[in-house]
């Protein structure tokens, strides 16, 4: 099974600061990591490959330094990595990003399954996965918490199919999806492995190709800022939440005080 995993490099902390001068996010000095949700995607891809054979190609769109995130996925068992990078991609919103990644996937060529994390921890949109599926005109299932079974029939690829559990607010749906398809995965699906030492050593030496807009045949009007319908007008800190009453005393007293207060407020 040929699997493509899309990842994003994000700041290691979500506790980012706004630069007072430029009113944009301070990116300097902030450590970067693989988007935590994408780690589940990489792990699931590697597990499927280990079970069914094939290979895992990881793709990321981002600045040249995103290479380090790709290298890490190689140390965790991915076979190949591609960095899609071009100044012309800068400022892309989810639509332009979906298009760009879809074009990069087309450039990779044949695939059976694309796996994405459910969302990135910086943008928190959860829109790029389904967006890629639409751009490639394949089926997708979001919020997958388990792959129940895969039927990978080499003799009749038309029958290739996957049965997955899609997480819902109050349970889960069981859905069958024909391959090729895209899934986005949630934390529940696996526990990502740590890299192996041999994997880390090999990953350090691996060549990671950089593909620009031309290489992936991207339509200039659909990438970067020009391909992005949504614009960030401004960013600001949310108003901090103020603390309230600190209650102390014996358990009975505490309980009474609380229940009285809640009844006063008519919330119970």
């Amino acid at each position: 099974m040929n699997i493509i995993v899309c990842i994003k490099q994000v700041p290691a902390t979500t506790n980012v600061q706004i630069d007072d001068k430029t009113c944009t996010l301070k990116r300097e000095g902030v450590e970067s990591i693989i988007n935590p949700f994408d780690e589940y995607a990489v792990e699931e891809g590697v597990r499927l490959k280990e079970k069914l054979g094939g290979k895992v190609t990881v793709i990321s769109m981002g600045p040249p330094q995103a290479e380090s995130a790709l290298r890490e996925t190689l140390s965790r068992g991915a076979d190949e990595a591609v960095l899609v990078t071009d100044r012309a991609f800068a400022g892309a919103d989810t639509l332009a990003t979906s298009y760009t990644l879809a074009m990069a996937i087309r450039t990779v060529g044949q695939f059976d399954l694309i796996i994405c994390g459910k969302q990135a921890s910086d943008g928190d949109t959860a829109q790029v996965g389904p967006g890629i599926a639409e751009a490639l005109d394949i089926a997708h299932v979001s919020y997958v918490r388990k792959i129940e079974q895969t039927t990978n029939k080499l003799d009749n690829p038309a029958d290739n199919c996957m049965r997955v559990e899609r997480m819902m607010e109050d349970g889960y749906d069981i859905v069958e999806v024909p391959l090729p398809a895209l899934i986005t995965v949630v934390k529940d699906i696996n526990t990502p492995r740590l890299p192996s030492l041999k994997g880390m050593m090999a990953a350090k030496k691996a060549q990671i190709p950089h593909w620009n807009a031309e290489k992936i045949n991207a339509d200039k009007s659909r990438i970067g800022l020009s391909g992005s319908p949504t614009w960030v007008k401004k960013i600001f800190y949310p108003p901090p939440r103020k603390g309230g009453d600190m209650l102390s005393g014996e358990p009975q007293e505490l309980a009474k005080k609380l229940v009285d207060k809640l009844r006063e407020l008519k919330v119970i």
């Binding site: 740590l194 890299p195 030492l197 880390m200 050593m201 350090k204």
Partner: peptide, 19 residues
């Protein structure tokens, strides 16, 4: 050297996450 740093980094991660 790079390999030694890797060993330390991996061992540290492992110790904190798994042990």
């Amino acid at each position: 050297d790079d390999d030694q740093k890797m060993i330390v980094e991996l061992a540290r991660k492992f110790a904190h996450e798994k042990i």
